[in-house]
Design a protein around this nucleic acid. Structure first.
Length: 898
DNA sequence: ACGCTGGAATAATCC
DNA sequence: TCGGATTATTCCAGC
């Protein structure tokens, strides 16, 4: 299937120009920008010329450079390295927030105590392709509207340096877009900085790391054996060398080696146990950190992953960080979801993107299998991800009739309840061999390996993904990275994320703009075993029911056993189990992939509001599926699970409240989607777990997280190619439509959940590690949805309800964790924190309670008013206006069905 | 010899 | 703190 473009392809000949440079006038080639050489520039960060914006670069690099620059000439290792991984002194603070990314002079703002943050002025401009792509951060911001309004407008936003930010503001708060929890890591001085500046470096590193190191490396780390004692010990301590380690040993001395340079100082630098060191660093002010790190710049210890250094988030994060969450996120997110017409700068990998816009739709025709054993660096490749019965995943770009071939990017994304972002513990792996017919090109974007696969008109813009394997990075390596907050243990689900950028012509989009579309596969369990042992709920026939229970509920999924039990439970705000009831399973009508149960009555039949609970399948104490949301409705209250997506009050009586009406049936779609596509795509309840082209509703593959897929979202996601509403109608569109209309009349407006309690912190052990806030936020966070609106938009525009969009592709997809569910359903745990960052984190909350006062001080942290204070009303107005404008455009386009 | 698997031993963690 | 249960990684062996 995949048409191999030919040799050229492999060589990175890919014509990005065709793809991305709409603009006839080839401005400075992005590649150029990405050129490594700049280290100097990059390094100088602060003064760095605008065009040198790392962020931009990275993107560009990734796409442009990535391709053409397949292997960037390694920048002067040492120098660059320093910059990259180590938070170079100057870079550190500067880099992250100001320096590099600022295009304009920054100004200092006293953020808190002893910290003075620089508020770089960010120039929000629309950059035409012609413009140097590399350009400034602004390019990212300009998405919104056309070239107009924002151009030249400058938003002076207070910035915090990553450190300070981090320090004070718990990761959860982390504003960075990238900040997905996992991305927080990016914020780490070292990593983040690095990532920002380093596109090329990364590439080179990547090259090294991926290409070279592994091979050479079979790690022979000095520490061959595992040590029980110090997992946390410096990364170096890991049993085997990690990429980075191998590349540069921790002990490496300043040696020249590129390896060294590559290595971020972070982990090993001080030979202090990571955690410890990290902490200490965090406590330092940004500047202090810088200094502290400065020495280490040359430090040998490579970060655990060179490659992983961070996905874009970091870079983005950086940039973004520099902007108050409200705007930043709102804008970015909004933009991201909106039409997505962007200037040449390509969106970071952690940006949420719609799967469809207008007639264009990126669709997964054939989903990958739900399980794929990833290989470790220490192992040989385990082959490419395969599709259901046979074959490989297939992705198609629909609606594109131009002759120009495009590039389909593929990377490994997360599958948790948060927005999709590059997975910290996995990387895409390019599989080659005689059995691989699809040409692919490997590149690295901000630490995330990306595979570029051609989408040729000759093939009907369809690509066979038979060259994508998945590499597992050692948890210890990743976790030890500074700033990394995600926990690797049990975090073994990933999704293949496909992305493409369409250079559209003016009628459709503003000149020189690129439409970025993205679609994520269903979750893929990458561990060797668990997948086969844990029950997995793929879809649920009923999402709500009267408190009296009694309705028949069908659960489709895998690994159901005769001993499987289905339990309904409710957690208190504190996350503690408040109620749990086992549903009666009709064994006669159940089988390995289907459980037919009777909804148990709720504990309190007199409730006046819907009660969000969750249900899961248990095959034994430690063999529980992820949880799915379910709602008990007051006796007289019938509704179609507004939170889940279709707010509407249904006049139901006893029957199960099915979105579409009528009792759930196997043959019928359970989700309220009328959209043919949905049905078509298997949004409905399907028995067959993973039909070839069918994508079951996102199953949360298990694990502690609770998965509360919004039906729609889930369905859509399940559909794979199907974009959730939110996605399809990027963000503001919803707003335009008027969220209110979408809301269920009976529901209270505002982000509050109908019911009080569910705790945002639901459970996920892993998540636990990460600040709960983020975790919780993950739920709603979604850019497209409420989150976005809530922050950046004015009240009237802000969607009252998060749910709708909550599960945009990213959001949902991931297995909506329990929390997600709750959040959606329940009001924001932190009422006072109205803003959600793009990642869905509750703004204003910090992990570990760090947020507090400091948060406030940290502009970045806020999405709401607080964060806006540095921006003038006009600016805000413009900002909003632009967004609206863009959305209107989007919606218009959308409304014009082709 | 190499890549791709499937299994499984062993270490690390979790409970 | 100990021991069992899980999970993560590394090794092996067969195609």
């Amino acid at each position: 299937m995949g048409a191999a473009p030919g040799p050229g392809w492999e060589d990175g000949e890919f014509e990005f120009k065709l793809v991305f440079e709409e603009d006839p006038s080839p401005g400075p080639s992005p590649v150029r920008m990405a050129e490594p050489d700049n280290p100097a520039t990059g390094e100088d960060g602060e003064s760095a010329p605008p065009h040198r914006d790392p962020v931009t670069d990275s993107h560009l690099a990734s796409s442009h450079a990535g391709q053409s620059i397949s292997i960037p000439s390694p920048p002067p290792p040492s120098s660059q390295r320093a910059g990259m991984h180590s938070p170079p002194p100057r870079r550190a603070a500067v880099r992250e927030f100001s320096g590099t990314y600022e295009s304009l002079p920054a100004r200092s703002v006293q953020v808190s105590e002893s910290r003075v943050v620089e508020c770089p002025s960010i120039q929000i401009t629309t950059i035409s392709p012609e413009d140097n792509q590399a350009t400034s951060v602004s390019s990212y911001w300009d998405m919104g509207g056309g070239s107009g309004g924002w151009d030249r407008e400058r938003l002076y936003l207070p910035l915090l340096d990553a450190f300070s930010y981090r320090d004070k503001c718990p990761s959860s708060l982390s504003p960075s877009p990238a900040s997905s929890p996992s991305s927080r890591g990016w914020l780490s001085p070292a990593s983040s900085c690095d990532s920002l500046l380093v596109e090329e470096e990364e590439l080179s590193e990547a090259t090294i790391a991926f290409g070279l190191s592994p091979s050479s490396s079979r790690p022979t780390s000095p520490w061959g054996k595992k040590r029980r004692n110090s997992p946390l010990a410096s990364p170096c301590a890991s049993r085997r060398g990690s990429y980075s380690e191998e590349l540069q040993g921790c002990s490496v001395e300043g040696g020249d080696s590129a390896s060294q340079s590559q290595a971020p100082p972070n982990s090993c630098e001080l030979s202090i146990p990571q955690k410890t060191r990290k902490t200490s660093l965090e406590q330092l002010s940004p500047r202090e950190v810088d200094q502290e790190l400065a020495p280490s710049q040359s430090a040998p210890c490579p970060p655990p992953e060179t490659q992983q250094p961070r996905r874009e988030p970091p870079p983005m994060g950086m940039d973004y960080l520099s902007v108050p969450p409200a705007l930043a996120w709102g804008r970015t997110r909004a933009s991201a979801h909106s039409p997505l017409f962007r200037s040449n700068a390509l969106p970071p990998l952690d940006w949420p993107l719609p799967t469809q816009f207008d007639q264009y739709e990126l669709r997964i025709e054939v989903q990958p299998r739900p399980h794929h054993r990833a290989h470790y660096e220490t192992e040989g490749s385990r082959g490419a991800v395969k599709a259901a019965p046979t074959g490989h995943p297939v992705v198609k770009l629909c609606g594109y009739s131009e002759r120009k071939p495009l590039s389909l990017q593929v990377f490994v994304g997360t599958a948790d309840d948060r927005s999709i972002r590059p997975h910290p513990f996995y990387q895409i792996h390019r599989v080659t061999g005689k059995m691989v017919g699809t040409a692919s090109h490997e590149s690295v974007q901000a630490g995330t390996k990306v595979l570029d696969i051609p989408l040729n008109p000759e093939n009907n813009m369809t690509a066979l993904i038979d060259c994508a394997g998945i590499l597992k990075l050692r948890n210890s390596d990743i976790e030890l990275r500074k700033g990394e907050t995600d926990v690797g243990r049990k975090n073994t689900r990933v999704r293949l994320v496909f992305r493409t950028h369409l250079p559209l012509a003016p009628p459709v989009a503003p000149p020189g703009r690129v439409l970025a579309l993205q679609v994520a596969s269903l979750p893929i369990e990458c561990s060797q075993r668990s997948a086969q042992e844990l029950p997995v709920i793929e879809s649920v026939s009923l999402t709500s029911c009267s408190v009296e229970g009694g309705e028949e509920l069908l659960l489709s999924g895998t690994n159901f056993l005769p001993i499987s039990r289905v339990l309904f439970m409710e957690r208190g705000t504190d996350g503690k189990l408040q109620w749990e009831e086992e549903a009666h399973v009709d064994r006669d009508n159940s089988n390995e992939c289907l459980l037919c149960v009777r909804v148990p009555a709720y504990s309190d039949l007199s409730v006046s509001r819907p009660v969000p609970v969750s249900l899961y399948v248990s095959n034994g104490k430690r063999k529980r599926s992820s949880t799915h949301c379910f709602k008990y409705l007051p006796v007289l209250f019938k509704e179609e699970d507004p939170l889940l997506s279709r707010p509407s009050v249904l006049p139901l009586d006893g029957g199960p409240v099915c979105p579409v009406g009528g009792p759930p049936r196997m043959d019928r779609g359970f989700h309220a989607r009328t959209d043919p596509m949905s049905e078509e795509r298997g949004l409905g309840f399907h028995l067959p777990p993973y039909p070839p082209a069918y994508s079951p509703p996102v199953p949360a593959m298990s694990y502690p997280e609770e998965y509360c897929p919004k039906p729609d979202a889930a369905a859509e996601e399940a559909g794979g190619s199907r974009a959730p509403l939110s996605e399809r109608h990027p963000s503001f569109e919803n707003l335009e439509l008027g969220f209110t209309e979408l809301l269920p009349p009976l529901y209270p407006r505002g982000p509050q959940p109908p019911s009080p309690s569910p705790s945002p912190w639901l459970d996920s052990p892993y998540l636990s590690s990460s600040p709960s806030p983020s975790h919780s936020s993950s739920l709603s966070p979604f850019p497209a949805g409420s989150p976005i609106s809530s922050s950046p938009l004015p009240p009237m525009l802000a969607p009252p309800y998060p749910p709708y969009s909550a599960y945009s592709q990213e959001a949902c997809p991931s297995p909506p964790s329990s929390s997600g569910t709750y959040q959606d359903i329940c009001p924001a745990p932190y009422p006072h924190y109205e803003g959600w960052d793009p990642q869905g984190r509750v703004l204003g909350m910090g992990h570990g309670g760090e947020g507090d006062g400091k948060v406030q001080e940290c502009p970045l942290e806020f999405s709401s008013s607080a964060s806006m204070h540095h921006i003038t009303f006009e600016e805000v107005s413009e900002f909003i206006g632009e967004d609206i404008q863009s959305y209107q455009l989007a919606s218009q386009m959308d409304n014009q069905p082709n």
